[in-house]
Protein backbone atom coordinates (compact mmCIF):
# COMPACT_ATOMS: atom_id res chain seq x y z
CA UNK A 1 0.00 0.00 0.00
CA UNK A 2 1.34 3.40 -0.89
CA UNK A 3 1.08 6.30 1.44
CA UNK A 4 0.16 9.76 0.31
CA UNK A 5 2.94 11.48 2.19
CA UNK A 6 6.51 10.63 1.33
CA UNK A 7 8.56 9.69 4.33
CA UNK A 8 11.19 12.34 5.11
CA UNK A 9 14.17 10.08 4.68
CA UNK A 10 12.86 7.53 2.29
CA UNK A 11 15.93 6.28 0.42
CA UNK A 12 14.09 5.53 -2.84
CA UNK A 13 13.78 9.16 -3.75
CA UNK A 14 16.09 11.87 -2.65
CA UNK A 15 13.45 14.47 -2.10
CA UNK A 16 12.92 15.70 1.39
CA UNK A 17 9.57 16.07 3.01
CA UNK A 18 8.00 19.43 2.48
CA UNK A 19 4.69 20.60 3.75
CA UNK A 20 2.43 21.19 0.81
CA UNK A 21 -0.80 23.07 1.27
CA UNK A 22 -2.41 20.86 -1.40
CA UNK A 23 -2.19 17.99 1.04
CA UNK A 24 -4.99 19.59 2.98
CA UNK A 25 -7.40 19.04 0.13
CA UNK A 26 -6.67 15.35 0.06
CA UNK A 27 -9.53 14.88 2.42
CA UNK A 28 -12.11 14.84 -0.32
CA UNK A 29 -10.23 13.52 -3.27
CA UNK A 30 -7.35 11.25 -2.92
CA UNK A 31 -5.08 12.15 -5.77
CA UNK A 32 -2.33 9.67 -6.46
CA UNK A 33 0.83 11.47 -7.36
CA UNK A 34 1.45 9.58 -10.53
CA UNK A 35 -0.07 11.16 -13.60
CA UNK A 36 -0.97 7.70 -14.86
CA UNK A 37 -2.96 6.85 -11.76
CA UNK A 38 -4.88 10.07 -12.03
CA UNK A 39 -5.78 9.35 -15.60
CA UNK A 40 -6.90 5.83 -14.75
CA UNK A 41 -9.03 7.19 -11.97
CA UNK A 42 -10.60 9.79 -14.22
CA UNK A 43 -11.49 7.16 -16.78
CA UNK A 44 -13.03 5.02 -14.07
CA UNK A 45 -15.07 7.95 -12.77
CA UNK A 46 -16.30 8.87 -16.22
CA UNK A 47 -17.32 5.32 -17.03
CA UNK A 48 -19.07 4.95 -13.68
CA UNK A 49 -20.92 8.22 -14.13
CA UNK A 50 -21.92 7.27 -17.64
CA UNK A 51 -23.31 3.94 -16.46
CA UNK A 52 -25.23 5.66 -13.67
CA UNK A 53 -26.72 8.30 -15.95
CA UNK A 54 -27.62 5.75 -18.62
CA UNK A 55 -29.29 3.46 -16.07
CA UNK A 56 -31.38 6.22 -14.55
CA UNK A 57 -32.32 7.81 -17.86
CA UNK A 58 -32.98 4.59 -19.74
CA UNK A 59 -36.66 3.88 -18.92
CA UNK A 60 -37.65 7.51 -19.32
CA UNK A 61 -35.80 7.78 -22.60
CA UNK A 62 -37.37 4.54 -23.79
CA UNK A 63 -40.82 5.76 -22.81
CA UNK A 64 -40.40 8.99 -24.75
CA UNK A 65 -38.83 7.19 -27.67
CA UNK A 66 -41.68 4.66 -27.78
CA UNK A 67 -44.19 7.50 -27.80
CA UNK A 68 -42.84 8.37 -31.25
CA UNK A 69 -42.94 4.83 -32.62
CA UNK A 70 -45.36 3.53 -35.21
CA UNK A 71 -47.16 0.27 -34.33
CA UNK A 72 -44.65 -1.57 -36.49
CA UNK A 73 -41.66 -0.03 -34.74
CA UNK A 74 -43.09 -0.85 -31.33
CA UNK A 75 -42.79 -4.58 -31.84
CA UNK A 76 -39.41 -4.23 -33.50
CA UNK A 77 -37.56 -4.04 -30.20
CA UNK A 78 -35.14 -1.31 -31.25
CA UNK A 79 -34.47 1.54 -28.85
CA UNK A 80 -35.18 4.42 -31.20
CA UNK A 81 -38.07 4.63 -33.67
CA UNK A 82 -37.12 3.89 -37.26
CA UNK A 83 -39.34 6.75 -38.31
CA UNK A 84 -40.64 9.41 -35.97
CA UNK A 85 -44.40 9.14 -35.68
CA UNK A 86 -45.82 12.11 -33.81
CA UNK A 87 -49.38 10.92 -34.36
CA UNK A 88 -49.38 8.97 -31.07
CA UNK A 89 -49.63 12.15 -29.04
CA UNK A 90 -52.79 13.68 -30.50
CA UNK A 91 -54.34 10.20 -30.68
CA UNK A 92 -53.60 9.56 -27.02
CA UNK A 93 -55.24 12.85 -26.10
CA UNK A 94 -58.23 11.93 -28.26
CA UNK A 95 -58.53 8.43 -26.79
CA UNK A 96 -58.23 9.35 -23.13
CA UNK A 97 -59.44 12.55 -21.44
CA UNK A 98 -55.87 13.38 -20.47
CA UNK A 99 -56.60 17.06 -19.99
CA UNK A 100 -59.33 16.30 -17.43
CA UNK A 101 -57.07 13.83 -15.65
CA UNK A 102 -54.30 16.36 -15.52
CA UNK A 103 -56.63 19.09 -14.28
CA UNK A 104 -57.99 16.75 -11.58
CA UNK A 105 -54.52 15.70 -10.51
CA UNK A 106 -53.24 19.24 -10.30
CA UNK A 107 -56.30 20.49 -8.42
CA UNK A 108 -56.32 17.62 -5.95
CA UNK A 109 -52.58 17.86 -5.34
CA UNK A 110 -52.43 21.65 -5.10
CA UNK A 111 -55.35 22.07 -2.71
CA UNK A 112 -54.25 19.12 -0.61
CA UNK A 113 -50.93 20.90 -0.07
CA UNK A 114 -52.76 23.77 1.60
CA UNK A 115 -54.67 21.35 3.82
CA UNK A 116 -51.47 19.55 4.75
CA UNK A 117 -49.50 22.69 5.52
CA UNK A 118 -52.41 24.26 7.36
CA UNK A 119 -52.62 21.26 9.63
CA UNK A 120 -48.98 20.31 9.91
CA UNK A 121 -47.07 23.55 10.33
CA UNK A 122 -48.86 24.86 13.38
CA UNK A 123 -49.10 21.40 14.90
CA UNK A 124 -45.40 20.76 14.38
CA UNK A 125 -44.63 24.06 16.05
CA UNK A 126 -46.96 23.39 18.96
CA UNK A 127 -45.63 19.90 19.51
CA UNK A 128 -41.94 20.65 19.19
CA UNK A 129 -41.72 24.17 20.56
CA UNK A 130 -44.49 24.42 23.11
CA UNK A 131 -44.13 20.72 23.91
CA UNK A 132 -47.86 20.19 23.81
CA UNK A 133 -48.58 16.49 23.88
CA UNK A 134 -45.04 15.72 25.09
CA UNK A 135 -43.54 12.88 23.10
CA UNK A 136 -46.81 10.97 22.80
CA UNK A 137 -48.20 12.87 19.84
CA UNK A 138 -44.97 12.88 17.82
CA UNK A 139 -44.70 9.14 18.47
CA UNK A 140 -48.28 8.66 17.30
CA UNK A 141 -47.57 10.58 14.13
CA UNK A 142 -44.47 8.51 13.55
CA UNK A 143 -46.47 5.34 14.08
CA UNK A 144 -49.16 6.52 11.70
CA UNK A 145 -46.46 7.11 9.13
CA UNK A 146 -45.13 3.60 9.56
CA UNK A 147 -48.62 2.16 9.14
CA UNK A 148 -49.30 1.32 5.51
CA UNK A 149 -51.97 3.47 3.83
CA UNK A 150 -53.96 0.36 2.94
CA UNK A 151 -55.10 0.42 6.59
CA UNK A 152 -56.98 3.60 5.95
CA UNK A 153 -58.27 2.65 2.50
CA UNK A 154 -61.42 0.71 3.44
CA UNK A 155 -62.46 2.85 6.43
CA UNK A 156 -61.86 6.05 4.48
CA UNK A 157 -63.80 4.65 1.57
CA UNK A 158 -66.78 4.06 3.83
CA UNK A 159 -66.34 7.46 5.49
CA UNK A 160 -66.14 9.28 2.18
CA UNK A 161 -69.21 7.39 1.00
CA UNK A 162 -71.13 8.62 4.04
CA UNK A 163 -69.88 12.17 3.57
CA UNK A 164 -70.88 12.05 -0.08
CA UNK A 165 -67.31 12.83 -1.09
CA UNK A 166 -66.63 9.67 -3.07
CA UNK A 167 -65.73 10.34 -6.68
CA UNK A 168 -64.98 14.01 -6.06
CA UNK A 169 -61.91 16.17 -6.19
CA UNK A 170 -62.86 17.64 -2.83
CA UNK A 171 -62.72 14.14 -1.35
CA UNK A 172 -59.26 13.54 -2.78
CA UNK A 173 -58.10 16.93 -1.47
CA UNK A 174 -59.20 15.93 2.00
CA UNK A 175 -57.65 12.46 1.77
CA UNK A 176 -54.32 13.63 0.42
CA UNK A 177 -54.28 16.64 2.70
CA UNK A 178 -54.54 14.47 5.79
CA UNK A 179 -52.51 11.58 4.44
CA UNK A 180 -49.44 13.77 3.92
CA UNK A 181 -49.50 15.32 7.39
CA UNK A 182 -47.03 12.79 8.87
CA UNK A 183 -44.68 13.34 5.93
CA UNK A 184 -44.96 17.09 6.35
CA UNK A 185 -44.35 16.75 10.08
CA UNK A 186 -41.28 14.68 9.37
CA UNK A 187 -40.01 17.19 6.80
CA UNK A 188 -40.81 20.29 8.87
CA UNK A 189 -39.41 18.90 12.08
CA UNK A 190 -35.79 19.91 11.70
CA UNK A 191 -36.72 23.27 10.20
CA UNK A 192 -38.90 24.08 13.18
CA UNK A 193 -36.22 22.91 15.59
CA UNK A 194 -33.71 25.14 13.85
CA UNK A 195 -35.62 28.26 14.83
CA UNK A 196 -33.98 29.17 18.13
CA UNK A 197 -36.24 28.95 21.16
CA UNK A 198 -34.87 32.32 22.29
CA UNK A 199 -36.71 33.97 19.39
CA UNK A 200 -40.05 32.78 20.74
CA UNK A 201 -39.04 33.82 24.22
CA UNK A 202 -37.97 37.24 23.02
CA UNK A 203 -41.36 37.65 21.36
CA UNK A 204 -43.21 36.53 24.50
CA UNK A 205 -41.28 39.02 26.59
CA UNK A 206 -42.10 41.63 23.96
CA UNK A 207 -45.72 40.92 24.83
CA UNK A 208 -46.69 38.78 21.84
CA UNK A 209 -49.25 36.05 22.55
CA UNK A 210 -48.42 32.47 21.59
CA UNK A 211 -50.47 32.80 18.40
CA UNK A 212 -48.95 36.14 17.50
CA UNK A 213 -45.49 34.76 18.15
CA UNK A 214 -46.22 31.90 15.81
CA UNK A 215 -47.66 34.03 13.04
CA UNK A 216 -45.35 37.04 13.26
CA UNK A 217 -42.04 35.43 14.22
CA UNK A 218 -41.91 31.69 13.52
CA UNK A 219 -44.06 31.39 10.43
CA UNK A 220 -42.15 33.93 8.32
CA UNK A 221 -38.97 32.00 9.10
CA UNK A 222 -40.58 28.75 7.96
CA UNK A 223 -41.65 29.95 4.50
CA UNK A 224 -38.71 28.27 2.76
CA UNK A 225 -39.38 25.04 4.62
CA UNK A 226 -43.06 25.27 3.72
CA UNK A 227 -42.30 25.71 0.06
CA UNK A 228 -40.02 22.67 0.08
CA UNK A 229 -42.51 20.60 2.06
CA UNK A 230 -45.38 21.77 -0.10
CA UNK A 231 -43.59 20.76 -3.29
CA UNK A 232 -42.81 17.31 -1.97
CA UNK A 233 -46.38 16.81 -0.77
CA UNK A 234 -47.65 18.04 -4.12
CA UNK A 235 -45.64 15.40 -5.92
CA UNK A 236 -46.71 12.69 -3.50
CA UNK A 237 -50.37 13.54 -4.07
CA UNK A 238 -49.92 13.97 -7.79
CA UNK A 239 -48.34 10.51 -8.06
CA UNK A 240 -50.70 8.67 -5.69
CA UNK A 241 -52.59 5.70 -7.10
CA UNK A 242 -54.09 3.47 -4.39
CA UNK A 243 -56.68 5.84 -2.95
CA UNK A 244 -57.39 7.62 -6.20
CA UNK A 245 -58.12 4.44 -8.06
CA UNK A 246 -60.42 3.18 -5.30
CA UNK A 247 -62.35 6.41 -4.85
CA UNK A 248 -62.69 8.03 -8.24
CA UNK A 249 -64.86 6.56 -10.95
CA UNK A 250 -65.06 8.94 -13.90
CA UNK A 251 -63.10 11.51 -15.81
CA UNK A 252 -64.49 14.34 -13.69
CA UNK A 253 -62.50 13.22 -10.70
CA UNK A 254 -60.00 10.60 -11.87
CA UNK A 255 -56.39 11.58 -11.54
CA UNK A 256 -53.62 10.97 -14.05
CA UNK A 257 -52.14 7.86 -12.47
CA UNK A 258 -55.59 6.24 -12.35
CA UNK A 259 -56.50 7.24 -15.87
CA UNK A 260 -53.24 6.08 -17.32
CA UNK A 261 -53.13 2.84 -15.32
CA UNK A 262 -56.58 1.98 -16.65
CA UNK A 263 -55.60 2.93 -20.17
CA UNK A 264 -52.55 0.66 -20.07
CA UNK A 265 -54.67 -2.14 -18.61
CA UNK A 266 -56.95 -2.26 -21.65
CA UNK A 267 -56.44 -5.33 -23.82
CA UNK A 268 -55.85 -3.90 -27.26
CA UNK A 269 -53.93 -0.86 -26.22
CA UNK A 270 -51.52 0.77 -28.62
CA UNK A 271 -48.09 0.88 -27.00
CA UNK A 272 -47.14 4.09 -28.78
CA UNK A 273 -50.23 5.89 -27.53
CA UNK A 274 -49.78 4.47 -24.05
CA UNK A 275 -46.23 5.79 -24.01
CA UNK A 276 -47.41 9.16 -25.28
CA UNK A 277 -50.10 9.40 -22.60
CA UNK A 278 -47.59 8.41 -19.90
CA UNK A 279 -45.03 10.88 -21.14
CA UNK A 280 -47.63 13.61 -21.10
CA UNK A 281 -48.50 12.69 -17.52
CA UNK A 282 -44.87 12.88 -16.45
CA UNK A 283 -44.23 16.33 -17.86
CA UNK A 284 -45.82 18.36 -15.01
CA UNK A 285 -43.73 16.65 -12.32
CA UNK A 286 -40.55 16.90 -14.34
CA UNK A 287 -41.24 20.56 -14.77
CA UNK A 288 -41.35 20.90 -11.00
CA UNK A 289 -38.35 18.61 -10.53
CA UNK A 290 -36.14 20.66 -12.83
CA UNK A 291 -37.21 24.14 -11.82
CA UNK A 292 -37.60 23.56 -8.09
CA UNK A 293 -34.68 21.18 -7.76
CA UNK A 294 -33.03 23.25 -5.05
CA UNK A 295 -36.18 23.28 -2.90
CA UNK A 296 -36.88 19.59 -3.37
CA UNK A 297 -33.37 18.47 -2.49
CA UNK A 298 -33.23 20.92 0.39
CA UNK A 299 -36.54 19.70 1.75
CA UNK A 300 -35.70 16.04 1.41
CA UNK A 301 -32.27 16.32 2.96
CA UNK A 302 -33.29 18.59 5.82
CA UNK A 303 -36.03 16.20 6.78
CA UNK A 304 -34.13 13.03 6.16
CA UNK A 305 -30.80 13.71 7.75
CA UNK A 306 -30.77 15.76 10.85
Amino acid sequence: MRTTIQQPNSPQNGETFQFKPELLTLSRTWKPKAEEGRLRKMIFVWIALAVIVIFFMLPIAYLFSTSFKSPVDVVDGSFFPNAVEAENWPRAFAQVPLWSFMRNSILAAAFSVFVTLGVAVMATYAMLKLEVGKSFLPDMILASYVAPPIIALIPMFVLMQKLGLLNSIAGMVLIYGLMNVPVAFWLMRSFVLQVPKALDEAAWLDGASYFKTFFRVTLPLLYPAMIATGLICFILSFNELLFAQAMTFDSDSRTLPVGISLFQGERRVNFGQMAAASSAGIIPVYFIALFCQKWLIGGLTQGGVK
Binding site: P196, A198, L199, E201, A202, A203, W204, L205, D206, G207, A208, S209, V217, P220, L221
Partner: peptide
Protein backbone atom coordinates in the same frame (compact mmCIF):
# COMPACT_ATOMS: atom_id res chain seq x y z
CA UNK B 1 -48.07 36.31 35.30
CA UNK B 2 -47.05 35.00 31.88
CA UNK B 3 -43.88 36.39 30.30
CA UNK B 4 -46.09 38.61 28.15
CA UNK B 5 -47.61 40.29 31.20
CA UNK B 6 -44.46 41.03 33.16
CA UNK B 7 -43.21 43.97 31.10
CA UNK B 8 -39.66 42.76 31.39
CA UNK B 9 -37.08 43.05 28.63
CA UNK B 10 -34.35 40.55 28.09
CA UNK B 11 -31.13 40.56 26.12
CA UNK B 12 -30.33 37.00 25.07
CA UNK B 13 -26.98 35.35 24.69
CA UNK B 14 -27.40 35.01 20.92
CA UNK B 15 -29.38 38.26 20.80
CA UNK B 16 -32.53 36.52 19.45
CA UNK B 17 -33.13 39.28 16.93
CA UNK B 18 -36.00 38.57 14.55
CA UNK B 19 -34.02 37.64 11.44
CA UNK B 20 -36.79 38.46 8.97
Amino acid sequence: LSPQERNIAMVFQNYALYPH
